[in-house]
Simulated scan of single mutants.
Amino acid sequence: MSQYKAAVVGLGQIGLTYDFDPKRESPSAHVSAYQLNSCIELVAATDIRIDQGQALHKIAPAVPFYQSMEELLKNHSVDIISVCTPPAHHLSAIQYILQNTDTRIIFCEKPLVSSVDEANLLKQQLKKGNCRLIPNLSRRWNSGMQRVKTHIAKGQYGELQKIHVKYTRGINNTGSHLFDLLHWWGGKISEVQALKKIKTSADYDSDPSYTFAFLIDKNILGFAEAFDDEQYYLFEIDLYFSNGKIEIRNSGDDVLYYQVGEHHLYTGFKSLYLERFENQLLSESNLGNAVNHLVNILDGLEHPLCTVEHGVYPLYVAEPLIRSFNNHCSKERVRLQ
């Protein structure tokens, strides 16, 4: 089997400390995902906070710790580097790696960059080299979400007509996953209208949460309702089809499939009946699946399931939402550049 070298830049929650949470399935952070993959050697990690070095060595005692990415890359040549810093630092980190290393894959946390302008700049710079930039839109790695995609693509429940969403924690944080899934399953969002701003913990990161309406490809109507996660956490999606329904519950841990049948009360009408229930989908590690996918890309066995275009797409939806709210809840077109 091939042996590849990896490094992690940023040892916050997704970089390292999610795996200290006993409720999370391991691996839930990049360090452990690399440590547990037999095809990868984790050769180094970095964070500006020296205390994170001590935390790193609880999981990976032999892995060298650095307080700067520049120092790490002077001492190590790597095939894969995970960028898990705050989003405001993603672009500068990616640019440095592209300009100063022969790294083959940059595996970057969401949101990929901080603005549409940065997204356009990044896409131009990536045309000049051979390094692959793969965003971690983590639900794409989950087999349950992949099955939802397959059922929709095959038209198993007829035409997708309406989408209802309940979410918490920001149009950039949770919104990165939400907009990517809607794009992946339904198509491009063509219009948005912010209706109300809701307080959530993402406000501390200047990431607003809106209740909003949206339109996909001019014919799929959608409504997303934001909730305050200090009361409870929500990520739920209902997909309504001409001949059935798919429900995503408990942050994607459960998926319920409904088919149409004769109504049990009213002659001449139809109703939805539960056909299949899938649960504990998050017992598989999305990050573990993602790292396996990176290995297969390097081995030439797979093409990237998640691309730069997918990674920047949520930004093109978030900015018109902000503009809509600031323009007294106007309808705004989503324009992809």
Score class of each variant (00 low, 15 high):
T200A: 08
A202Q: 04
D203P: 00
Y204K: 14
P208W: 04
S209W: 01
T211R: 10
F212T: 06
F212G: 05
L215T: 09
L215P: 04
I216T: 00
D217V: 05
D217S: 15
N219E: 13
N219M: 13
F223C: 03
E225L: 12
A226E: 08
F227N: 01
F227G: 01
D228E: 11
D228Y: 03
D228V: 05
E230N: 15
E230I: 15
Y233G: 09
F235R: 03
F235M: 07
D238N: 15
F241E: 05
F241N: 08
S242A: 14
K245N: 05
I246S: 04
N250M: 05
S251M: 03
G252C: 07
D254E: 02
V255I: 14
V255S: 06
L256S: 13
L256M: 14
L256T: 09
L256R: 05
L256G: 10
L256Q: 13
Q259I: 11
Q259Y: 07
V260L: 06
G261M: 06
G261R: 07
H263L: 05
H263I: 10
H263W: 10
H264E: 10
Y266G: 01
Y266N: 04
F269N: 12
K270D: 13
L272I: 09
L272D: 12
Y273I: 14
L274W: 12
N279H: 03
N279I: 05
Q280N: 12
Q280G: 11
L281I: 11
L281T: 04
S283I: 07
E284S: 08
E284N: 10
S285I: 09
N286Q: 07
N286I: 00
L287E: 09
G288D: 07
N289D: 00
A290E: 02
